[in-house]
Design a protein around this nucleic acid. Sequence first.
DNA 1: GATAGTTTCATACAACTGTTTGAATTGCAA
DNA 2: TTGCAATTCAAACAGTTGTATGAAACTATC
Lengths: 221, 221
Amino acid sequence: MASDHTRSAILAAAERLYADRGFGDVTLRDIVAEAGVNLAAVNYHFGSKDELIAELFVTRSVQTNRERLRELKAAEEQGGGRAPIEVILRALVGPTLRGCLGPETQRSTAARFMIRASIESVPPIRRIKNREIDHLRKFAAAMRRALPERSDVDIYWGLNFALAMAHHTIRESERLTKLSEGKCDLDDVEDVVARVVSVATMALTAGRTETKARALARDAR
Amino acid sequence: MASDHTRSAILAAAERLYADRGFGDVTLRDIVAEAGVNLAAVNYHFGSKDELIAELFVTRSVQTNRERLRELKAAEEQGGGRAPIEVILRALVGPTLRGCLGPETQRSTAARFMIRASIESVPPIRRIKNREIDHLRKFAAAMRRALPERSDVDIYWGLNFALAMAHHTIRESERLTKLSEGKCDLDDVEDVVARVVSVATMALTAGRTETKARALARDAR
DNA sequence: GATAGTTTCATACAACTGTTTGAATTGCAA
DNA sequence: TTGCAATTCAAACAGTTGTATGAAACTATC
């Protein structure tokens, strides 16, 4: 492996084109033209088109997952193995939201690519997403430690709803802006994170069982 | 227009095939083979493949929207023009969830088709979804009437989160079942509706501003 | 039962797709 | 420099796709 020039040129061109125009109407010929390399180079370096897409997605995906786990681990270490549920949820949805939202003009190619991947969902990407369950289980475990009185079912539903709000907001950010006539500021990422975390926390703590977090909130009044 | 036989055979076959195998790998030739009609019939009756898909999606989409508005109108009439927020949210997410979840074996073709449409999102369907904003505005208006002290921003965020939870749960129902090792029962549709409505209600009523719903809940203790 | 309009049909079209091939080129080590 | 492997390249391949065509079959009306 000499200089990797061709290989990385393809990766960069593909990510940019997919981000801009979607997976549906970007062909290998578009990519190699943008990268200034030969058509056969894609199959030579990646094996197939799907493996190219998979490599793009895996790269960005592990970056996000690493960031998530880093935040989670830091929070749990600081709390002696048990982090507050809000912090766990923030570690779960924060990196994704920060990576995909924010002012459109300064949005990275990687961010726009991940938004596409979230909207279009082509087979090679779907296959990878299915392997993410182990990763989510780590968060489920941390949430169970934070809310020991909650049932597993409630934990999983809370996790599901937290991811739902984050991903849907990313995927439909344009529509929400239009619907609200610009009143909802999707560029204020930290506000979005706070809203998602707040609602997810309520979903997990309110209800029949009185949890520590709820008791704490009540006592604080 | 004589008997519509060919036309409806195409629609039925297309919906079934798309539901089973997704938009990605179902060709017009697959559809006409399944329908037992000639290849040219699709272009003759629908103009193009995209228009066929659009007609399929519009049909099911207006059914859901009609159902939503029926529930909303009934609730508002009963409440003298103002329905409780829970009932509005139930009218928003109930029809969609009831239409797409439930025991897989007895899930209708239409339901499975709509799940596909929610996962894959092809261009003709995306175009139609973009026109749904007017429909959502009616719900935003009803929610504003129910929670007059809430800011528009909060209303839109609540609406966004309610749709997020419903759609994400539909789209990722398989993954949630696997993640929770079957503990989350996606077949108990009314339980899912109740969970989504409950969380969305909390999102809309809890927080800085003390709303009527919250005051009511507190006084009830 | 002839006619006009609609619908069906087999077939061809034209374009595009990801992939393969085998030769040419390059870069590096002996 | 020679030799060898890695890389690049132009070209072609094989298959699929949605769509168009023009003739044939059908249907209803007069």
